[in-house]
Amino acid sequence: MTLRTSLIATTLLATAPAFAADVNVYSHRQPELIAPLTEAFTAKTGINVNVAFMDSGLVERLKAEGDRSPADVILTVDISRLAQAVDAGVTQSIETETLKTNVPAAYHDPAGHWWGVTTRARVVYASKEAVADGEITTYEDLADPKWKGRICTRSGTNSYMIGLTSAYLVHHGAEETKTWLEGVKANLARKPQGNDRAQVKAIWAGECDISIGNTYYMGQMLADEEQKEWADSVRLEFPVFENGGTHVNISGVALTKAAKNLDEATQFIEYLTSPEAQEIYAEVNNEYPIAPGTAASDLVESWGEFTADDLNLMTIAEVRGEALRLTEEVDYDG
């Protein structure tokens, strides 16, 4: 965690009056992305939400603070970060009927240590000019030699890529996963580099025909004057695992082990999982709400329908170490 981040965290949380009804949040998501949520929650309940944004080091800070930590709640993205917090012993279980009603079983920790808020699918960005509509139907197909020299991806050790490889590992086992990684590597048009948006730029520039990326990046690119041209050159395809669905990851929330404001924190976590909050959050971030009966924004809905894989994300998190080992064994980034 940077010094600036540490100072922001200390200042934001220290300035909250001790007598006020408060909930203190450590967040990996930037303040402007969650401000609509916190403001709506305060208006609804009268409880102040003090947010400390941390671009890194959230779990390490909680471990260092121990029982002295002012944080009641952590808000983050990606199952790996949620699992890391659980493994570090800085969270505690919380289960209420409201949470169980709002969050499907696949999107919360079976032991109640974290709860999903929104999802994003990891999909294929396909060149409108070079790839026929519906030509890609499965993740397994990415290893087919027909794509040789046509795929761009970010580093295979990136957390989003490891999440997809972990899901493949759960579906197919280590031997098939290694073969798949070797096949995808053989199909790469260039050395893995950049972020998900950089891969779409490469398609626009004619360096490759397909890439792998999270759905919400389409919304981010469409909102950017320069990047809109990249986005307009591709369409989203929603591949599935054979005998499975489309791989998804989440943004999620957890109650800290050191939480002092338990009632306020419980209300806040329940609110985040409510249809009202999820629709706000999902629209701001171009993601999918997960509470039954909620809908994504018109823009996100326009990308098409898909069936999410039903693997519990904690099952995927448990094999991330093995997925990383296989990725390094095939020298995916080499």
Score class of each variant (00 low, 15 high):
residue 164 L to K: 00
residue 164 L to R: 00
residue 165 T to Q: 11
residue 165 T to W: 13
residue 166 S to W: 02
residue 167 A to S: 14
residue 168 Y to I: 06
residue 169 L to G: 03
residue 169 L to D: 01
residue 169 L to S: 01
residue 169 L to I: 08
residue 170 V to I: 08
residue 171 H to N: 09
residue 172 H to D: 07
residue 172 H to M: 04
residue 173 G to N: 06
residue 173 G to C: 12
residue 174 A to K: 05
residue 174 A to I: 02
residue 174 A to Y: 01
residue 174 A to F: 00
residue 175 E to P: 11
residue 175 E to G: 10
residue 175 E to Y: 08
residue 176 E to L: 05
residue 176 E to Y: 01
residue 176 E to I: 01
residue 176 E to W: 04
residue 177 T to I: 13
residue 177 T to N: 07
residue 180 W to P: 04
residue 180 W to V: 03
residue 181 L to S: 08
residue 183 G to S: 07
residue 184 V to G: 07
residue 184 V to Y: 05
residue 184 V to D: 06
residue 185 K to P: 15
residue 186 A to F: 09
residue 187 N to M: 07
residue 187 N to A: 08
residue 187 N to H: 05
residue 188 L to E: 08
residue 188 L to P: 07
residue 189 A to G: 14
residue 189 A to C: 13
residue 190 R to N: 03
residue 191 K to N: 15
residue 191 K to S: 15
residue 192 P to A: 10
residue 192 P to N: 07
residue 192 P to W: 03
residue 192 P to H: 04
residue 194 G to R: 13
residue 194 G to D: 08
residue 195 N to A: 04
residue 195 N to V: 02
residue 196 D to A: 10
residue 197 R to I: 13
residue 197 R to G: 09
residue 198 A to H: 14
residue 199 Q to H: 01
residue 200 V to K: 00
residue 201 K to E: 05
residue 201 K to L: 00
residue 202 A to G: 03
residue 203 I to K: 02
residue 204 W to V: 03
residue 204 W to R: 14
residue 204 W to Y: 11
residue 204 W to N: 13
residue 206 G to K: 09
residue 206 G to I: 11
residue 207 E to C: 02
residue 207 E to G: 05
residue 208 C to N: 09
residue 209 D to H: 04
residue 210 I to R: 01
residue 210 I to P: 00
residue 210 I to V: 15
residue 212 I to C: 06
residue 212 I to F: 13
residue 212 I to W: 03
residue 213 G to S: 06
residue 213 G to F: 00
residue 213 G to N: 02
residue 214 N to K: 00
residue 215 T to M: 13
residue 216 Y to Q: 08
residue 218 M to Y: 04
residue 218 M to K: 06
residue 219 G to L: 02
residue 219 G to A: 04
residue 219 G to C: 06
residue 220 Q to M: 14
residue 220 Q to Y: 14
residue 221 M to N: 12
residue 221 M to C: 09
residue 222 L to V: 08
residue 223 A to Q: 12
residue 223 A to H: 09
residue 224 D to M: 15
residue 226 E to D: 15
residue 226 E to C: 13
residue 227 Q to M: 11
residue 227 Q to S: 12
residue 228 K to Q: 13
residue 228 K to E: 12
residue 228 K to I: 15
residue 228 K to C: 06
residue 229 E to F: 10
residue 231 A to G: 14
residue 231 A to H: 14
residue 232 D to I: 10
